[in-house]
Nucleic acid binder design. Structure first.
Lengths: 192, 192, 192, 192
DNA sequence: CATGAATGAGCTTTCATTCAT
DNA sequence: CATGAATGAAAGCTCATTCAT
């Protein structure tokens, strides 16, 4: 039944939460309306289930990437890769999330899960990177974590909206470089 | 009357487009329901008007920032600043846009305006930066432009959702550094 | 519009409140569903309006009958007549009330109105009758008032259900005699 | 299992038939929904079973009270007592009946049972009372029987709704006096 | 010009009921 | 025998939109 619900994610992503009628989900999943209500409390609960599933996956992947003894810089790169991989694994759910960010934000459980799965680990990494010297100090870790989150999500989703498919490798390289090195040309500095 | 509509933007931002009843807009703006229909074709037209207003502002500001003879790198920094300034000037509309990205994307006029106001200028800048050597070459300008857009929007909105107010200067510094230099610690390279 | 709603009372009386679909009321009254919602908060509000109208009438009629300088016994007879007359004037609403007594009782405003319109005046009358010697003392005025209410309502409704018409005069005579003299044969008592 | 169903009667009485979900009955009785369907044809069949049980009891009790060689007046008094005793034995079912009189009336078997259990015996008694001189002649026996029925039911239920308990003796005295002697003060008549 | 009144269209949700085990 | 799982059918209510004034 879990796979049947991927179709629901696609509908949410294409039409938006509020424009999606329960009947649309029933048709897309092949599950009768009343049966959906037998398993879920309502439309929002279906969205929440999808987001929960993806965010659980993301929490695991990001946590694994963020742990270990490697320099924070390398682990941050691994986190970027992990997030993009998760998005590639849940393309429709990701599009649904980005397309209806406000709605998701109004579900406390979900916004908490986003914080826990991504923002907290990244903020920790920023601190560790400053400590081990592999990342530059940032003035405002919260804002920076948001910027990283937004850069990855938006860039990856840019692919997803096109064809619902994500060339993880390509995007990972592009975005990782962006996150770690920015867009400025490498500055040749004098050795003192 | 234009200012009255700021209240509408706030309602859209707080509740989401579909959850906002025309009656909510009427109450928030003090304009009777039927009168809103006298001026606008419908609910979506009100949102479109708000987005159009902000995107027009953004188009102007970004175009101004992107033009000139300065190195592309400096102009990109100016574009980042310009976009953040625009967001500070239209906080509610920006939140409404980010919260309902899917809906806005489904309005052709709006997604075209976003492309024209931000993505096109930035892509041009990336090319010019590669040419003048002030920006590093990027593999996929579209994806990168999306990443830049996402980084700025998400970071800035992070402030807006908190208190609907944006400390432009602070965010600009943070985000500009992120966009230009990334998060990695500056690498000391040997001069040959 | 008030007369249009008499049709609603008939539907409530025939089918019961819960079995009555808003659409049934719309058809019976000729008022579109949405228009009913424009004027009433919901189905129950329509029933409440009908009951309120009848109970207001009853309150006035009973109050008028119960007042004055005549012996309480005569005024009680007038109250019986008044209640029956009101029922004859609102046949469908009365049937609806008796058929769905539980529902009406669960609307606080309505049960309060029934108490105020009938039970309170009758209890006062019982007390005055005991004082002026025109009515016999009763052990429990509340129970007795209920008995009187039930006797009148049930007897009168017995007619209404048959043909939705009430021969007030006939029922009044029958019920008044019952209420004042009971069913026992007149006892011949010795003059002292 | 019969006792388990008393809980169902209480739910019907408190919420009304239509507002009662089968699930409510399942919870109240401790009998799973599907099992209720194993024993009963549906919701209405459960109500009918309860009413049938009470009306059977009433039929027996009233028949016993109405029979015998005593004057009709005394037997009528016994009938009043019998009906009140039955109500005291089935408090919830009685409340359910009075609260949803319309629904019960629409079940032919039930309205027939009410007629057979109470109205027919009472009408017979009225005729016999007129014959043996112990009851006064009444113009319309049907209406009068209804009045008696309503007086007893309403007065007794007045107690039941308060605390679901009926002080039979107290109500019996009050109502019997009312039914036989009415409320008027005893008139002293001259012996011829 | 501006607006109060009126309504058509549609969607979420509930629930009685069935049936395989 | 008894029941958890599944579903078809229905209805209350909301709301965008229209229009007469």
């Amino acid at each position: 039944m879990a796979e049947r619900l991927d179709a629901a994610a696609r509908v949410f992503a294409d039409q938006g939460f509020d424009q999606t009628r329960i009947e649309d989900l029933a048709e897309a999943t092949g599950i009768p309306r009343a049966t959906l209500y037998y398993y879920f409390a309502g439309k929002e609960d279906i969205l929440a289930w999808l987001l929960r599933r993806m965010l659980g996956d993301m929490a695991d992947a990001v946590a694994a990437a963020a742990s270990g003894a490697a320099p924070a810089r390398d682990r941050l790169a691994a986190v970027v890769r992990a997030k993009i991989d998760v998005m590639a694994r849940h393309p429709a759910t990701c599009r649904a999330l980005l397309a209806d960010l406000g709605r998701a934000g109004r579900i406390p459980e979900i916004s908490a899960a986003i914080q826990a799965a991504f923002h907290h680990p990244v903020r920790r990494l920023l601190a560790e990177g400053e400590a081990d010297g592999s990342l530059r100090p940032v003035g405002d870790p919260e804002t920076t974590a948001s910027a990283v989150y937004g850069a990855i999500s938006t860039a990856a989703t840019h692919y997803l909206v096109a064809d619902n498919h994500l060339d993880s490798e390509r995007v990972t390289v592009e975005v990782t470089t962006f996150v770690l090195a920015g867009l400025g040309a490498p500055v040749v500095r004098a050795r003192r």
